[in-house]
């Protein structure tokens, strides 16, 4: 299956250092959240070599507007997701 989907990824917190606005990714339909995270890391590292020195992606989770997605969640259509680094509200 070679179908691809275009995902928009909203950046929050420390990710804003590495990319302004939403990040656009083309990935195979059915990619897992884990695959999407790896693709985000690869894309950010291309434009910001310093990103590779951080462990930010390992500590972050992918989410839609309703929930945090487990690493094995499959994404099967073009949607907007968000990458959420460790939080510190209050």
């Amino acid at each position: 299956m070679n179908d691809t989907m275009t995902l928009s990824i909203r950046m929050f917190g420390a990710f804003r250092k590495y990319h302004q606005g939403e990040l656009t990714l083309d990935l195979p339909v059915g990619s897992t959240a884990s695959t999407v995270k790896s693709a985000i890391a690869a894309t950010l590292q291309q434009s910001n070599p310093a990103f590779g020195n951080s462990d930010l992606i390992e500590k972050s989770v992918l989410a839609d507007n309703h929930r945090i997605l487990p690493d094995d969640a499959k994404i099967s259509s073009a949607v907007t997701l968000a990458i959420l680094p460790p939080v510190c509200g209050g």
Binding site: S60, A63, I68, L69, V87, G89
Partner: peptide, 29 residues
């Protein structure tokens, strides 16, 4: 809230630097 709500702080220092504060990793479970 400090552990579960997706909220982040960027501190601005007197010396002109700014940095995102390290926080608690979210969990999908």
């Amino acid at each position: 809230i400090k552990h579960r709500s997706p909220i982040w702080k960027q501190e601005h220092y007197l010396d002109g630097d700014s940095e995102w504060v390290q926080g608690h990793a979210l969990c999908s479970h």
